Simulated scan of single mutants.
Amino acid sequence: MHTFLLILQVIISILLIAIVLVQPGKTNGLSGFISGGSAESFYSRNKSRTSEAMLSKLTIIFAIIFALLCIAQNLIK
């Protein structure tokens, strides 16, 4: 059982790293600093339906699974 949890944790950790690396940056850079960066657009109003929102939710889900696997492995030892 311990080996199965260890393999599952390695797979989840690799997926978590990949999902975090695929996400775009949250900063606007210098252009956001100069223009204010808080312009309302169609994209910013519908952000919950984008792939960026899906990646954010997947990151949270995989992080919770990773934490639960860590706890389960410590309890089994």
Rank of each mutant, 00 (worst) to 15 (best):
M1F: 08
M1P: 14
L5M: 08
I7H: 10
I7T: 08
I7G: 03
L8Q: 04
Q9F: 06
V10A: 11
V10I: 09
V10G: 07
I11W: 02
I12D: 01
I12S: 02
I12F: 08
L15H: 00
I17P: 01
I17V: 11
I19N: 07
L21H: 04
Q23V: 10
Q23H: 05
P24T: 00
G25M: 08
G25K: 12
G25I: 07
T27D: 10
G29H: 03
G29Y: 05
L30K: 03
L30I: 08
L30A: 09
L30M: 07
S31Q: 13
F33Q: 09
F33E: 15
F33K: 12
I34N: 07
I34S: 05
G36N: 06
G37T: 02
S38E: 12
S38C: 14
A39V: 10
A39P: 01
E40N: 15
S41N: 04
S41V: 06
F42G: 05
F42S: 04
Y43C: 08
S44E: 10
R45H: 04
R45S: 02
N46W: 07
K47Y: 08
K47H: 07
K47I: 12
K47D: 09
S48Q: 13
S48E: 14
R49P: 08
R49A: 10
R49V: 09
S51A: 12
S51V: 09
E52D: 13
A53C: 12
L55D: 03
L55M: 14
S56M: 06
S56V: 06
S56N: 12
K57M: 14
L58A: 11
L58Y: 04
I60H: 13
I61Q: 09
I61V: 15
I61C: 15
I61D: 12
F62R: 01
A63C: 05
I64D: 08
I65A: 05
F66E: 08
L68E: 07
L69F: 02
C70S: 14
Q73L: 09
Q73N: 11
Q73M: 10
L75K: 08
